[in-house]
């Protein structure tokens, strides 16, 4: 039962290194609106860390998203993420504002930060959820895959706040715009007793563009080891281009050097949910499936009729990619 003391939802608003609000924040916000209404219209608040020169910009960005309050920690030191500073300042904030639910994106940063906070608050944290709901007792029911995606578990938390991390791409964003007077609050804080001994020496960007195209793609064509070699992936790219699709790959294909890791889809890569997913030469290991099974329609092309991918493909085409796709391109070229 809700304890009566904790109320409202808090969301961690992660910024990218380029100071954009991370897409996962909007996904969590959208889901929070659904959860807040099931809880009888509780507040939805956000917490953000930024440098002083960007305050006004963010004040504007956070308007009309449907947030009640944005708690903003500002300091030149917050140019880079710091486990020590962020976790301890958030712990103090949470002890003060007492939310009942606290959501964090399951990015590498979020997964570094969240367990640090939950342990210090002596509360529970459910990692990498694929479903969030409010149960009949008003508690957060967090569902997540375990055992490599074979088993789903719905987890409840006995303590407050009930914390969960959710991967980017798991929830949809219906609309960001939502008129509301959002209050911007600068909590008092001090660095007393805080020391960050982790020094960042340098950073090498590995993502081609700031926003990964897979996040917003309506059609994705993905290749696996059945594409055999670079020629196979070149053909996949031609196919993608002809239908305006974005290219993805399995972990095996990435590890074989056929595709960059930024386009890897699956448990250790990206989670996607396009309108159409075309799996080419992908056998369908569970680790890949958990990253794409929420696609609206799945087509699989594979010459092994026993491949597990056919168990989850809406349209399974048993056949040779190297025959079907050139023929398809030829037909389209007419």
């Amino acid at each position: 039962m809700p304890n009566g003391e904790n109320s409202g939802i808090l969301i961690y608003a992660q910024l990218t290194r380029e100071n954009y609000i991370h897409t996962v924040f909007f996904e969590l916000l959208d889901k929070s609106k659904e959860l807040a209404s099931k809880l009888g219209g509780v507040e939805i608040n956000a917490v953000i860390f930024t440098t002083p020169n960007l305050i006004n910009e963010f004040r504007e960005s956070f308007q009309n998203m449907g947030l009640d309050k944005v708690y903003c920690f500002e300091n030149d030191l917050f140019k880079n993420y710091s486990t020590e500073y962020y976790s301890k300042l958030i712990v103090n904030l949470v002890n003060y504002i007492k939310p009942e639910i606290f959501l964090i994106g399951a990015t590498t940063q979020g997964r570094d930060l969240a367990p640090r906070i939950s342990s210090a608050l002596h509360t529970g944290l459910t990692a990498d959820c694929t479903g969030l709901d409010i149960n009949e007792k008003g508690l957060l029911a967090a569902t997540r895959p375990t055992f490599g995606g074979e088993l789903m578990a719905t987890i409840l938390c006995k303590t407050y706040p009930q914390m969960a991390t959710v991967r980017p791409g798991v929830f949809r964003v219906n609309s960001v715009y939502d008129k509301k007077d959002t209050e911007f609050i600068f909590p008092q804080y001090s660095f007393e007793g805080l020391e960050d001994r982790v020094k960042i020496l340098d950073f090498r960007n590995s993502v081609d563009s700031i926003i990964n195209e897979l996040d917003s793609a309506e059609i994705i064509v993905a290749g696996g080891m059945g594409l055999k070699n670079e020629q196979g992936f070149a053909l996949l790219k031609d196919f993608a281009k002809s239908i305006g699709a974005t290219v993805g790959a399995t972990r095996a294909a990435v590890e074989a050097g056929l595709a960059p890791s930024s386009i890897q889809i699956g448990q250790t890569g990206k989670t996607v949910r396009p309108k159409l997913y075309i799996a080419c030469g992908i056998s369908g290991a569970i680790q890949h499936i958990v990253g794409m099974e929420n696609s609206e329609h799945i087509i699989a092309i594979n010459n092994d009729k026993n491949a597990p991918i056919f168990e989850i493909a809406d349209t399974g085409i048993v056949g040779d990619f190297f025959e079907i796709i050139p023929k398809y391109l030829e037909t389209k070229g007419e």
Partner: peptide, 28 residues
């Protein structure tokens, strides 16, 4: 432990798997 598993279930796909074994032309 603050958290506990209230339900565990097998991850079963909601896609209606239909498999076609056709000629190349029909597949295209």
């Amino acid at each position: 432990s603050p958290t506990y598993v209230s339900k565990a279930f097998r991850n079963i796909s909601n896609h209606n798997a239909q498999k076609y074994e056709l000629s190349t032309e029909e597949s295209v």
